[in-house]
Design a binder for these strands. Structure first.
Lengths: 238, 238
DNA sequence: TTCCCGTAATTGTATATACAATTATATACA
DNA sequence: TGTATATAATTGTATATACAATTACGGGAA
C-alpha cells in the first residue's frame, strides 16, 4: 500500500509543475511561481519548495535566474534518441506477422537489484512479466519487466497477448521521462534458449526506465539477438 | 575573479568526495562518512552535508541505503546518446585520465560499403582515421572514421592527440542531424587485440553518421567493449 | 537453537529562520 | 534629460532542530 503512503511534499510540488508544463499552464519560457509562492500554495516551508524546484532544474526542466525567477526550459529542441516504440507496431510496419508468448506474469518481492532500479524498498511487492516477442514466428525480443505493485494495481489482470505492457502502462501513466542504458552482453542460458540463438551470439540489452509526472513507473530489460535486431535513431537538432 | 569567490560549502564537500573516489580513498562499494560525520569534518550543518551527498546520488556517483549508510556506486562508463559528446571530456568528467593512440590516418579510395554509407561514389577519395581512446590507460573505444575528402580538406593535417576528430569536425561543420545505429557484435581479431578483450566478449557497435546543413559529413564506427561501456540516454518529454 | 524485540546508527523529510547575491524598477538628483 | 541610488522581488546558501523510517545487531525468551 505504498500509494496510500503520502508522497513527500517536495514530490507533490514537482508533480504539480510537471502537470503544469504538460498541460500548457506553463508553456516554454514562461515563469513559474516563486518559491515563496509555491510554499504558500502548498502550505510548506520555502526550503521544501526550494528542493522541488532545484531538482527540476537539475533535470533540465526548469531554469532559474537569481533575482528574476524560475522559468520553463525550452526543451522541445531535444528529440529523444530512442523512440519508445511498440514492438508489435514495429513488426507490423515491416509487413510482418507479430506474435508473442507470455512466459511469466506474477507478483514477486523485489530483489535487491530490482528494488534499486525501481526505487522501491527491497522485498516490496512488484509485478513481473516476461514476454517473448516474435516476428514471423522468430523470437526478436525478450521483454522482462517490473512494475511497482503499489502503482499499477491491475497489471496482473491484463491480457498481454492483445495489448503490450507498454501500451497498457502508457495509457494509465502518460510518459514524461525515459531512460535507456544499452549494453552488449552474452546471453545466459534462459536467454539463448528463449531467443533460439547460439550461446556465443552477442545480445543487445536495453535497460529502459519510464517515468510519469516524475514518478518511476516501470523498469524493463529488453534483450535482442545482435544478429536480428538493431536500434536506430535519427534526430535533427537546432 | 570567479575562483577567488568562495565556493559553496556543499560544493567543497562534493569535491572532497570526488577526490576521495578518484584517489581510491573510497573505492567502489566502500562506505563514505555519514552525513553527521561529514558535517563535523567540514564544520557545517547536517543539511549542508545532506545536500552534497544527495546531489552525488542524483549524479549516480553514490548510492544510499536508509539505516545503512552511503556507498560509492560501481561506476561503469556511460555515454549519453542524446548529446554527441567528446569522449575525452566524457572521461575527464568522470575524473579519470584520458589518452589516445592514433593508429591510422590516411587518404583512401572509398570501398563499396564506405561509399554507400558516406553517400559518395565508390573509389572516390576519403580520409580514414582510426583512434584508440583510453580511460586510465584502458582502451574503451575504437573510433574508426571516414570523411569525404572533398569536404574536410585539412583533415590529414590535424593533431588528433590534442583535438578529437569530433571536435575538429563539429567546429567546421556545426551538427544539424545525427543518426545512430547500434548493434551488438563479437569483436574481430583487430578489435579484440586493440581493446585488449577476450575474443568472446561482446561489443557495442555504434554506427554514427553526422550531417551539417543537410550535408553528410562523416561516418564513424565506434566500438566499445560490452564490459566497460554503456550508452545511456535520458530525456524528458511533454 | 531459533525467534522476537529493543536499541543504535543512519538516512529521509520537513520546518523556521537568516543573510547574501542578483536583477529590475522606481525614485531622487544634477 | 540622463545618471546614480534605493528598494523590492527573487533566488542561493546555510543553520539548528525535529521526528520518521529503515536496517543491523545484540540480548533475552521460548
Amino acid at each position: 500500500m505504498r500509494d496510500s503512503k503520502v508522497r513527500p511534499r517536495y514530490q507533490r510540488i514537482k508533480e504539480f509543475i510537471y502537470r503544469g508544463i504538460k498541460g500548457h499552464t506553463y508553456p516554454p519560457d514562461s515563469q513559474i511561481p516563486a518559491e515563496i509562492e509555491l510554499a504558500r500554495m502548498f502550505k510548506v516551508s520555502r526550503m521544501t519548495a526550494n528542493r522541488a524546484v532545484r531538482e527540476l532544474v537539475n533535470e533540465g526542466i526548469l531554469v532559474r535566474h537569481q533575482g528574476l525567477g524560475t522559468f520553463v526550459a525550452d526543451i522541445q529542441a531535444e528529440s529523444p534518441l530512442l523512440e519508445i516504440r511498440n514492438i508489435a507496431d514495429e513488426v507490423r510496419a515491416r509487413q510482418h506477422i507479430y506474435s508473442n508468448e507470455l512466459r511469466l506474469l506474477q507478483k514477486e518481492q523485489a530483489s535487491a537489484e530490482v528494488a534499486a532500479r525501481l526505487g522501491v524498498a527491497k522485498g516490496s511487492p512488484v509485478f513481473h512479466s516476461l514476454i517473448l516477442h516474435k516476428e514471423n514466428g522468430v523470437p526478436i525480443q525478450i521483454e522482462d519487466r517490473y512494475v511497482d505493485a503499489a502503482i499499477a494495481h491491475g497489471y496482473l489482470e491484463q491480457d498481454f497477448s492483445r495489448i503490450t505492457p507498454n501500451q497498457y502502462l502508457s495509457e494509465l501513466f502518460p510518459l514524461s521521462e525515459i531512460e535507456h542504458i544499452i549494453e552488449a552482453v552474452l546471453p545466459d542460458r534462459q536467454v539463448h534458449e528463449l531467443l533460439k540463438i547460439d550461446p556465443n551470439e552477442p545480445c543487445l540489452l536495453v535497460n529502459r526506465r519510464t517515468w510519469s509526472d516524475g514518478r518511476l513507473i516501470s523498469y524493463a530489460r529488453l534483450i535482442h539477438p545482435g544478429s536480428r535486431y538493431r536500434l536506430s535513431s535519427r534526430s535533427a537538432r537546432f
